[in-house]
Simulated assay, not measured.
Amino acid sequence: MKLSAEQLLAIVRDYWPSEDLDAYCGFKRTPEQERFDELWKRELEKIDRWRAFLASFRAELPEFTLSDITAPVDASFRCGAYAKADPQQPQREWVVVGCLSILAPVYTVYGVQYTDDGKKRSHELFFEPLPPKMRAPADLIARRIEARFEATALPRELAETPIPLYVEPRKPPDTTLFHALFIGDPERLP
């Protein structure tokens, strides 16, 4: 089922506050935070299903380390397909991330490349179209999520829709449906 930006915004409004960031981060718990925490309590009962899902195709990605990188502060189950180190470019690492939203039947796959010059680590995010080296693992993860969870890919144009909500560490006008449905800080990886 394809959902519109308006339908997705109506869903995420239940879980992310539109209040001032100070109130959101303070001692006061918003009703949206309470609903989000309650939803995660229910969703964590399904974590074994997510991990079994990852185990079911781990062998199909022999050149990657496939890990569960779910954090119940984000709005999605997440996995990371970490590329094994390239001896030609040891300072460059990259990972393909698959996200299955707990808020709506949608998913996304994106890439992150890290560059470490010995003094600082920088990153670059990649969305569709992904660089050639990221496409094969991204396609496999996408097909598997669609088949197992009957989720649909969130189109990039919908993902980039600005929303008036606070999704840590994002605040309006820099918050998008992507942040609310998946993760506020997509480059944050273990």
Score class of each variant (00 low, 15 high):
K46R: 01
I47C: 02
D48I: 08
D48A: 02
R49I: 07
R51M: 00
R51F: 01
F53H: 01
R58D: 04
R58I: 07
A59D: 12
L61P: 03
L61C: 05
F64W: 13
L66S: 08
D68L: 11
D68N: 00
D68A: 10
I69V: 15
P72A: 12
P72E: 12
D74G: 01
D74C: 04
A75Y: 12
S76L: 05
R78I: 01
R78Y: 12
G80W: 11
Y82T: 11
Y82V: 14
A83E: 14
A85T: 06
D86H: 05
D86E: 14
D86P: 11
P87M: 10
Q88D: 13
Q88M: 15
Q88V: 15
P90W: 09
R92A: 14
V96S: 11
V97H: 02
L100C: 01
I102E: 13
A104W: 11
A104G: 06
V109I: 10
V109C: 05
G111M: 13
V112Q: 03
V112Y: 00
V112A: 03
Q113I: 09
Q113A: 06
D116V: 05
D116C: 07
D117I: 08
D117M: 09
K119P: 03
K120S: 06
S122R: 08
E124W: 11
E124R: 04
E128N: 03
E128R: 08
P129M: 12
M134E: 03
R135V: 04
A136D: 03
P137Y: 00
A142N: 00
R144C: 01
R144P: 06
I145K: 03
E146H: 07
E146C: 08
L154K: 13
R156G: 06
E157S: 05
L158Q: 04
T161I: 14
P162T: 07
I163N: 05
L165E: 08
L165M: 14
L165T: 01
E168M: 15
P169F: 13
P169G: 10
P169T: 14
